[in-house]
Simulated assay, not measured.
Amino acid sequence: MKALFIGGTGTISSAITRQLAESGCELYLLNRGNRNDELPAGVRIIQADINREEEVSRLIEGHSFDVVADFIAFEPAQLERDYRLFHGKTKQFIFISSASAYQKPLSDYRITEGTPLSNPYWAYSRNKIACEEYLMKQYREQGFPVTIVRPSHTYDERSIPLGVHGSKGAWQVARRMLDNKRVIIHGDGTSLWTLTHNSDFAKGFIGLMGNIHAIGESVHITSDESVTWNQIYEIIADALGVKLQAVHVSSEFLAACSQDDLRGSLLGDKANTVVFDNSKLKRLVPGFTATVRVDQGIKQTIRHILAHPEYQVEDPEFDLWCDKVIGALETAAKSVTE
C-alpha cells in the first residue's frame, strides 16, 4: 500500500505512522518537518507547507496513492484545496473529523454514526461538520472516494487526558496534585467519558485504509470502555502517588470564568456523557478491539512524563486561575451562610 499523510506526527497520527512503518507500508508524510526527528525508519518525507498549494502540486506530480489522509484540516477551504490536489490521484481520501460534532446536548447518550451532527457551543465542531458536508457532496457528485473518521478523546504518552487544563497543557494539573493543592473537576465528576489510547485508534484506522467498504462512510474509532471524570482524576492521582484533592465546579461557571474556549471544549464536549457504539467499526474491521485499559494507559503516560522533563511545562497563569475560581466559590458559599 502506498499512502500519504498530511501531518503524521501528532497525537493521533504518530501511532498510525509507527504501526504502518512496521508493516512495510510505503508511507509518505507531507509536513513542514518540525517534528520529524523521531520518525521510524523507512518513512518518506515530502517537506512542504500544505497551504502552499502550487508547491505541493509540483512535489506530488507523478505520484498516485492508495490512501491520502489529512490530519490537520479544520475548515472547508482546506478540504477544497485537498480536493483540487488529490482528485484523481488517490483511491481513498480519509478526513479526520471529530466526535465532538455529534449532537449537543445529546438526545441519547449512546452515540452511533447516525447520531445527528449539531454543536451550537463550539465553532471547531461546526467547522468539522461543514468539512464533512463538503466532502460528502464531492463523493455524491464527483465520485471522490471519501472516508470520514471521527476520533473522540485520544491520548498518548506525551499528555495527560484531562477535562480542564490551561493553554500550556496538562502538566500544571499534575503539579498541583503533587503539591497537595486542590484541582478542579468540571460538574460533579459523575458524567461518563471515553478515552482512547492512540495505539488502539491506530489499529482501527489502519483497518479502514484501503477498505472498499469504508468508501462513502463515516466511522468513529473509540474504546468501548466508559469511566467517570472522578475515576479519571483518581487514576492520575494514584499514578502520581498522591491523594486527590478535588473541587467540583459547574461547567457553566468554568466557561464563564475562562478566557480560553472552555465553553466549546466543556459545554460542547466534555461536560456531556458520551458512550460510543462501535458496531459499525467492528463490521468494517473485524476483530477490532481497544486493548489499552484507561488506568493502564494513564499510568504509562504518567511514567513517561515523569521521566521526560521536557513535557513538564509549567503554567503559572492557569495555576493562579484555579486558585481564583476555587476562592470565588468559597467566598460565595460563605456569603450565603453568614
Rank of each mutant, 00 (worst) to 15 (best):
Met1Leu: 13
Lys2Gln: 11
Lys2Asn: 04
Gly7Thr: 09
Thr11Trp: 07
Ile12Leu: 13
Ser14Cys: 07
Ser14Asn: 08
Ala15Gln: 02
Ile16Arg: 02
Ile16Asp: 07
Thr17Arg: 00
Leu20Arg: 05
Leu20Cys: 15
Ala21Leu: 06
Ala21Lys: 02
Ser23Tyr: 02
Ser23Gly: 12
Cys25Ala: 15
Glu26Leu: 12
Ile46Leu: 15
Gln47His: 04
Asp49Cys: 10
Asn51Ile: 03
Glu53Leu: 12
Glu54Thr: 15
Leu59Cys: 08
Ile60Met: 08
Gly62Thr: 15
His63Phe: 15
Asp66Gly: 09
Val67Cys: 08
Ala69Gly: 02
Glu75Lys: 10
Pro76Ile: 10
Pro76Asn: 10
Arg81Tyr: 09
Arg84Glu: 11
Gly88Met: 12
Gly88Arg: 14
Lys89Gln: 13
Lys89Trp: 12
Ile96Pro: 04
Ser97Glu: 03
Ser100Tyr: 05
Ala101Val: 01
Gln103Phe: 06
Lys104Phe: 03
Pro105His: 10
Pro105Cys: 11
Asp108Arg: 13
Asp108Glu: 14
Arg110Tyr: 13
Arg110Ile: 15
Ile111Gly: 02
Thr112Pro: 08
Gly114Leu: 14
Thr115Arg: 09
Thr115Ser: 11
Ala123Pro: 01
Ser125Tyr: 00
Ser125Leu: 01
Asn127Thr: 00
Glu133Ile: 08
Glu133Tyr: 04
Tyr134Thr: 02
Tyr139Asn: 13
Gln142Leu: 11
Gln142Gly: 04
Ile148Arg: 05
Ile148Leu: 12
Arg150Pro: 01
Arg150Glu: 03
Arg150Tyr: 05
Arg150Thr: 02
His153Trp: 10
Ser159Asp: 14
Val164Gln: 01
His165Pro: 02
Lys181Thr: 09
Ile185Met: 08
His186Lys: 04
Gly189Phe: 03
Gly189Gln: 06
Thr190Tyr: 09
Ser191Phe: 08
Ser191Asp: 08
Leu192Ile: 08
His197Met: 06
Asp200Pro: 07
Ala202Gly: 07
Lys203Asn: 14
Gly210Val: 07
Asn211Arg: 10
His213Gln: 15
Ile215Arg: 06
Ser218Gly: 13
Ile221Trp: 00
Trp229Phe: 11
Asn230Phe: 02
Asn230Asp: 15
Gln231Asn: 10
Ile232Thr: 01
Tyr233Val: 03
Ile235Val: 15
Asp238Gln: 08
Val242Ser: 08
His248Ala: 14
Val249Ser: 01
Ser250Val: 04
Leu254Lys: 05
Asp260Pro: 04
Leu262Cys: 05
Leu262Gln: 05
Arg263Met: 14
Gly264Asp: 00
Leu267Tyr: 00
Gly268Met: 05
Asp269Trp: 05
Lys270Phe: 04
Val274Asn: 06
Phe276Trp: 06
Asn278Phe: 01
Lys280Ala: 03
Lys280His: 09
Leu281Thr: 01
Lys282Cys: 10
Arg283Gln: 13
Pro286Phe: 06
Thr289Leu: 12
Ala290Gln: 05
Val292Met: 12
Val294Tyr: 01
Asp295Ile: 01
Lys299Pro: 09
Ile302Ala: 08
Arg303Ile: 07
Glu310Ala: 14
Gln312Gly: 11
Glu317Phe: 13
Asp319Ser: 15
Cys322Asp: 07
Cys322Ala: 14
Lys324Cys: 09
Val325Glu: 10
Ile326Lys: 01
Gly327Cys: 11
Thr331Pro: 00
Thr331Asp: 14
Ala332Arg: 12
Lys334Phe: 09
Val336Ala: 14
Thr337Trp: 05
